[in-house]
Computed example of a mutant assay.
Amino acid sequence: MFTDAKMRDEALLRECRSPGEERGEGKLREGTDVHGRRGGGPTRAELAACVAGLQEEMEVLRRRLDEAEALAESRKKLLEEMEKELAEKNEESARFRADFHNFRQRTERDAARLRELAAERAVTLLIPVLDNLDRAIAAAQADDPLLKGVSMVRKQFFGALQELGVSAITCDGAFDPAVHEAVALVPVQDPARDGQIVQELQKGYLLGGKVLRAAQVHVGRFQADSDSEEE
């Protein structure tokens, strides 16, 4: 950029000289134009002053251009720093959101677990009351006027336990060691009843699919008659 300006200045100076001066034939006479004519044309001093003014303006423009480039570079660096800081803030915000999401999930799991433990403890304490109601119903006479009332209380009480997620273990069919406790093996004559529950001694209960208390039962065991074995 500086070389182009210098070349333009030199061209302008060459235009300001007469042909004879370029060949070293002398200087312009005072009061004559570049072609040696007298008249109202600019003098060499005026042209030199014009060129000097132009050079000065160009120098000012170059300085302003340099300042503008320096300012642009400074703002570019500032913009890069702001973009970097914004990226860091976005990354930090993303980590914070992920941590908060994990914390909320963990809190919800812990709260659900606490509710399960509280319900399990409450039900464990209440099941013996249900057992006593069952014993009272089993021991009452059919014509006892209190039997109907106790049966209604038992039904209402078990309904409240069902609201907490309690369910009774079924004791019809095959023995299941996961939910049944075999108290004794009872001989049976029917081979189809081998391994089947033949009697329920104590009810068992589940809470949300988890065994609170296994049902105590008698399990059938097939034994062939001695006469059949001899034959």
Rank of each mutant, 00 (worst) to 15 (best):
M1D: 12
K6N: 14
M7A: 14
R8Y: 11
A11F: 10
R14A: 11
E15N: 15
R17Q: 09
S18N: 06
S18D: 09
P19Q: 06
E22P: 01
K27S: 08
R29T: 05
T32Y: 10
D33Q: 03
H35W: 12
R38F: 04
T43K: 03
A49I: 04
A49P: 02
A49G: 04
C50E: 12
L54I: 08
Q55I: 04
E56H: 07
E56Q: 06
R63W: 03
R63C: 03
R63M: 09
E67Y: 07
A68V: 06
E69F: 08
E69T: 08
E73D: 12
S74T: 10
K77T: 10
L79V: 07
L79A: 14
E81N: 13
M82F: 07
K84N: 07
E85M: 11
L86H: 13
L86E: 14
A87Q: 15
A87H: 11
K89S: 08
K89C: 12
N90D: 13
E91N: 08
E91I: 05
R95Q: 11
R95N: 13
A98L: 15
A98K: 13
D99W: 15
F100G: 09
H101C: 13
N102D: 13
R104H: 11
R104S: 12
R104T: 10
T107K: 15
D110G: 06
D110N: 10
A111V: 08
A111N: 10
A111W: 08
R113M: 11
R121K: 15
T124H: 01
L126A: 00
I127Y: 00
D134I: 07
A136V: 08
A136R: 07
A138E: 12
A138Q: 11
A138G: 03
A139T: 12
A140C: 08
D143Q: 08
D144H: 10
D144A: 06
P145F: 05
L147D: 05
V150F: 03
V153S: 02
K155C: 01
K155T: 03
K155Q: 03
F157W: 12
F158T: 06
A160T: 05
A160F: 07
E163M: 00
E163C: 00
V166N: 00
S167E: 10
A168L: 06
D172V: 13
G173C: 12
A174R: 14
P177R: 13
E181V: 04
A182D: 08
V183Y: 11
A184L: 14
A184S: 15
V188M: 07
Q189M: 12
D190P: 01
P191Q: 04
D194K: 04
V198Q: 02
V198A: 05
E200P: 01
E200C: 04
E200Q: 05
L201M: 04
Q202N: 04
K203M: 03
K203F: 02
G204S: 02
Y205K: 00
G208R: 00
G208W: 00
G208P: 00
K210W: 01
K210D: 01
K210F: 01
L212Y: 01
A214Q: 15
A214I: 02
A214E: 14
A215F: 05
Q216R: 15
Q216H: 09
V217H: 00
G220M: 10
G220Q: 02
Q223K: 13
D225Q: 12
D225E: 13
S226G: 05
S226A: 14
D227W: 10
S228N: 10
